[in-house]
Design a protein around this nucleic acid. Structure first.
Lengths: 202, 202
DNA sequence: AAAAATACGGAGTCATCACTCCGCTTGTCA
DNA sequence: TGACAAGCGGAGTGATGACTCCGTATTTTT
């Protein structure tokens, strides 16, 4: 126990991966993201392996469980969102930053189909699963989005009576709704939601 | 061919079901609705049978395919929604009728969990499946909701630049989002959406 | 009440998955 | 460059779930 060379938290394994292993891991992650996006999270692990051009064994070595694979993919997506939120956090135009981020997420989800379906609140059990790393990710997203929201509210661009919970629900719901919608309808749906968020309550 | 006694369209089979058969069919439908609502549409047919207190064989005799069972359940739900919409169609208060219906659907879905998840736009393939009877159902819902919307718009209670498509998307998304939300947050989410729908565009 | 028509239950079949195991290959390090 | 650790592929395993089949039970008809 005391002989552990580098007992790091996470995201940096004790011993670094062999070059090819790292490459494969990345390939699998990309493939998984695509496959799950296209076919839904019910797609088989074998299909992911095939798409990645590796054997099933390899997939399972890197991600010992289908759930863990899903988690990893979801984690990446969340990280991307968190990053996008963070970037806008310092914007001189809080209102623009907030709505822009909202639109970005909805736009992304509209493409990503199934994965985002899960992500955005289908709820079921994906909200339950959680790595510490995952929880961390979620926390970061919430944090950054919280800043965006607060700043937008301070400027009076967003009504004061909504909290992070409401915004995330709206984000999830709108993303969900935006799928399979042509661009123009999607635009109008966003308009409605945005107007609702801007409205000052009586 | 010409000897068919009553070659009716649907909803009334050529020869009427035996008493016990009709009873079982109904039991299965109820059980399916409950099970799918609780466990999601992935729940096994056997579980439905168990809940209904019949054998699997019976379930499959009445609904030769899991998909057809899902369809039947969905059809019932849609029919219920259509009925609710129709009822409000003649209301002297178009604005109230519209928003009330919206709220009703969202409230229902919040309870019905998974089934409504599919229903309300998870899209995937459930939008593709379709009985003629099913298509008919959908058409009726759209029709009645269309009336509610138009009347609400005529009174100026709903912005003129949204169509049925936008409203249905919003309905679906909001229902989706409303799941796993406590009542107070759900209320505020609805507030936002309603305000958005009321807003007159510039 | 007995025959005929229907429907019932549930064991059995077949396909699909997630996941394991192990002999072979490839990268790494001295 | 050779030895050894690390990684790889994919056949094999066990579980699960949709759907079938048929001997038995219940209705309906005569």
């Amino acid at each position: 126990m005391a002989t552990e060379p580098t007992p790091e938290k996470s995201a940096a394994p004790a011993r670094p991966l062999r070059a090819d292993a790292a490459r494969n891991r990345a390939k699998v992650l990309v493939a998984a993201r695509e496959v799950f996006a296209e076919r839904g999270t019910g797609a088989s692990t074998e299909e992911v392996a095939k798409r990645a051009g590796v054997g099933i064994g390899t997939v399972f070595r890197h991600f010992p469980t289908k759930e863990s694979l899903l988690e990893a993919v979801l984690g990446e997506i969340l990280a991307g969102f968190a990053e996008q939120a963070r970037v806008r956090t310092e914007s001189p135009d809080p209102a623009g930053a907030f709505f822009d981020f909202f639109q970005f997420v909805v736009g992304e989800s509209a493409t990503k189909n199934a994965v985002s379906a899960e992500l955005t609140g289908a709820g079921i059990d994906l909200h339950a699963i959680g790595d510490d790393a995952m929880q961390e990710m979620r926390k970061e997203l919430r944090g950054a989005l919280g800043v965006l929201l607060t700043r937008a509210q301070e400027v009076g661009a967003v009504r004061a009576d909504v909290g992070l919970g409401e915004v995330m629900a709206l984000l999830a719901g709108t993303s969900q709704a935006a799928q399979n919608l042509d661009v123009v309808v999607r635009g109008r749906v966003l308009d409605v939601v945005f107007d609702g968020l801007r409205a000052q309550h009586p």
